[in-house]
């Protein structure tokens, strides 16, 4: 049950992100809701599930609309895995946690994207990227992460989402 709900969240988010959200770009930049969903799940559920969710989300994006297959899957998976390692020591009842991780991981996402672009012979000027993409997107992601965190946090509290996560230690 939990699996299907998470999968449908990922797919619905992807569809909305690639279609309707495109018409509501602010300054030409779109908040990366897929990344935020991955972060939130790995904050709440730890590195194992986080990494799997990140991998699926990224691969879906890469196959259907990406330019290099695997790049989003790679970055999402690594970000989710590393954030998930902190899961046990994180304080989860404050909105500061998602905002903090959203800002950090958006920056990491863009730095890794930049390095892949650099390695595949598509060099771009980092200053322009920073000014036009990274800075606005980080701010948007920080704001949007509060909404997504709140929604998913409440969702994970529901009985049908709880099946066998909380008790087990791994």
């Amino acid at each position: 049950m939990r699996f299907y709900i998470v999968l449908s969240i990922i797919i619905v988010n992807f569809i909305l992100q690639s279609t309707i959200f495109q018409y509501f770009r602010i300054l030409g930049v779109l908040p990366n809701t897929a990344l935020l969903i991955v972060i939130v799940f790995s904050i709440l559920w730890g590195e194992k599930k986080g990494a799997v969710i990140g991998f699926i989300t990224g691969l879906l994006q890469d196959i259907l609309v990406g330019s290099f297959v695997g790049i989003n899957a790679l970055i999402y998976m690594l970000i989710a895995y590393n954030i998930g390692n902190f899961q046990k020591i994180l304080f989860k009842d404050t909105y500061l946690t998602p905002v903090f991780f959203a800002i950090i991981s958006t920056s990491i996402y863009h730095v890794s994207y930049y390095s892949v672009m650099y390695m595949t012979n598509n060099p771009v000027e980092f200053l322009i990227v920073f000014k036009n993409i990274v800075l606005p997107e980080t701010i948007y992601n920080g704001i949007v992460s509060v909404v997504i965190y709140r929604w998913i946090y409440n969702l994970t509290r529901k009985s049908y989402m709880k099946e066998k996560i909380r008790g087990s230690k791994c």
Partner: peptide, 14 residues
């Protein structure tokens, strides 16, 4: 056109 790349790095569409 059916979809656009959600990322901000590329201008790719399906």
């Amino acid at each position: 056109v059916v979809a656009k790349n959600p990322g901000n790095w590329f201008n790719i569409f399906t």
